[in-house]
Design a protein around this nucleic acid. Structure first.
Length: 221
DNA sequence: AACTCGGGGCA
DNA sequence: TGCCCAGAGTT
């Protein structure tokens, strides 16, 4: 597909939300890091409820270490996988204090070395806290990429590399947010709103003439 | 590649 | 009830 066509696609997605940002609530890079660790296989609404409780009490590595494992769990119990997430956050706080002066490193390798932080979380932090042009492939983006001809791939990393190549440079920083919003509200896992889709001309999945819902496409889980 | 963690939202 | 949710770590 030529550059002009690819640019048009992102112009259409951008029109839906010209100044996109994450739905996760945060004030500092550290708050974002914790919120994204908590968001694995959880809804952002649930994560925001938990982080509001937590950050009101502790929003630095030092403060969370003072809270302790059980104190931390008390605030995030309503989120799935909270046992492993709490343990990972404590260990991450220890490493931040010991090796990074209590601050979130702006470095992919350092981020991915933190417990609970994989490639997706590192990409969100690099993008949204530090303004770098990364694409964090989550369940929504993976679904959009595979339902369309944008960037079909078997693994999130393959999809990420294809999306980086597909996306014109001027759109690379915010492409992540637009694709996620499109996956959340239009190209939903169940009952996608194909009639309002701005990139349905790229859809390999839908029979455009047949009414009715799309069959579900699994995410990364 | 497959498995496990996991409470909550939603149809 | 079953599926899905801004995944990561282990085997």
């Amino acid at each position: 597909m030529n550059a002009h066509k690819r640019r048009q696609i992102f112009e259409r997605l951008r029109a839906l939300d010209p100044a996109p940002t994450t739905e996760l609530e945060f004030r500092t890079p550290f708050e974002l890091l914790v919120a994204v660790i908590l968001s694995a296989q959880a809804t952002d609404v649930g994560v925001n409820r938990a982080t509001r409780r937590l950050f009101a009490v502790a929003n630095t590595p030092e403060a969370i270490l003072e809270l302790g494992l059980e104190g931390l769990k008390a605030h995030i119990r309503t989120i799935g996988l909270f046992n492993s997430k709490a343990a990972n956050i404590i260990r991450t706080c220890e490493i931040l204090v010991r090796d990074h002066r209590g601050e979130v490193p702006r470095d992919r390798a350092a981020l991915e070395g933190l417990p609970g932080v994989g490639r997706k979380t590192a990409n969100v932090v690099l993008n949204t806290a530090f303004g770098e042009a990364t694409i964090a492939v989550d369940t929504h983006i993976f679904r959009v990429a595979n339902r369309t001809r944008l960037a079909p791939g078997k693994t999130p990393l393959e999809v990420e590399r294809k999306l980086m190549r597909f996306t014109p440079a001027a759109f690379r920083r915010d492409a992540h947010h637009w694709l996620i919003l499109h996956g959340r509200y239009t190209c939903r896992a169940r009952r996608p709103l194909c009639e309002q889709c701005v990139i349905h001309d790229l859809c390999e999945y839908r029979d455009k003439t047949a009414p009715g819902p799309l069959p579900a496409v699994a995410g990364t889980d």
